[in-house]
Design a protein around this nucleic acid. Structure first.
Lengths: 204, 204
DNA sequence: CAGTTATTTGACCAAGTGGTCAAACTGACG
DNA sequence: CGTCAGTTTGACCACTTGGTCAAATAACTG
């Protein structure tokens, strides 16, 4: 081993615990609504100990966010330019819906941040996300040019996918309140598949 | 005039100013993220003066919320059981979209609250809203039985309308960041009309 | 084992927070 | 003008919050 391995075993474990706890707390209360004490308690650490690993509340938040962002954009990145258009989009919708089911905290944290004007996220939105979206809308419009998809507004199409899939995570409490026993994620996949098949199939 | 008009002119003016300021502040920062001082400053009043009209931060919030709720449910209430199904639903979508454009703060306040688990709103959701939704889904399903609408999951249909329309208010900053100069509300009405026409038109 | 570094903590602080209160001010009305 | 309910405020308080620090403890290294 070299002189000083700048991350030890304990550090790795604690950092992971902290990020997990912070995701929990932040996604439930937003940034301002969360306290360092809450996160410390959720992580099973004392407050000074937590601040030994991340020096400020802001640093914790940034760490959670950057951890999250890549995962979040993956489904869109995975849309294959050379695939069958309808299949690719349906697969994207399905993946996004699965993420809402399996990672609702991440979705809510995102939503929380954007609803409040994305003060800590605007930079990323206007560079990384914009670039990705610009790239993918070009592809989608090519598909429409080739007559493989019904011609609609490509950006609004993406917005609709985000809105419809993330709604099940972000508004979970409302959705479940109104659906009673029935699990929203039972019928949602079929519903969205029907919706996008009808929306995107060319009439010719 | 009677002995004591229990609301004076000054009271009416100040209460209105406060609710307006509170809506602004709450919708931007959520409940926990907002401070009484912020609201007081936004309303142009001293903090004790503000607390003279609403005794606690919680009371201000509740007042804003109950003011908001009726307005918020109106579009759905207005859906006419005896109208032409497709027309009624399209009109509902259009009204909801207009509300997102004209009252984005209200939409965001709502979103903020629900994303965080609706601690101050669950009661209303599970009674007033549930009742209204139950009533309207019955109507929608009757329309489907009559062959006037494509048969789909009626609750998910409502969720989709909320998700798609409110997205433009709640995620405004993201939508605008990605659309550049173009006003999202230019193309959104046509986009949603196409979407719901295709989704809801019976096949045969 | 001793020495060194990494980790953990109790005690503390300054700023911000929701809320109180007595005193001052305002305005309508006889 | 006097008066009295209605309105406004500066000063204040208890509590929470993000963050610091010196000292204690645990872990690793030779």
């Amino acid at each position: 081993m070299a002189k000083s391995p700048n991350t030890t075993r304990i550090q790795q474990r604690n950092r992971a615990t902290i990020l997990e706890a912070a995701l929990d707390v932040f996604s439930q209360n937003g940034f301002r609504g969360s306290t360092v004490d809450q996160i410390a308690k959720a992580a099973g650490l004392s407050k000074p100990n937590l601040l030994y690993y991340y020096p400020t509340k802001d640093a914790i938040f940034k760490a959670v966010m950057s951890d999250l962002l890549d995962t979040w954009l993956d489904p869109l990145r995975a849309m294959d330019h050379d695939g069958e258009p309808l299949v690719e989009i349906q697969a994207y919708v399905a993946r996004k819906l699965e993420m809402s089911r399996d990672f609702p905290r991440e979705s809510r944290l995102f939503a929380n941040e954007i609803v409040q004007g994305a003060p800590r996220l605007l930079e990323t939105l206007s560079t990384e996300l914009k670039e990705l979206v610009d790239e993918k809308t070009v592809v989608i419009e090519r598909w429409m040019d080739e007559g493989k998809l019904n011609r609609i507004h490509s950006r609004h199409l993406l917005f609709s996918i985000w809105a419809l899939t993330q709604h099940y995570a972000d508004f979970d409490i409302q959705v479940r309140t109104l659906m009673g026993d029935e699990d929203p994620f039972d019928a949602a996949p079929a519903f969205l598949e029907t919706l996008y098949e009808r929306l995107l199939t060319p009439l010719n």
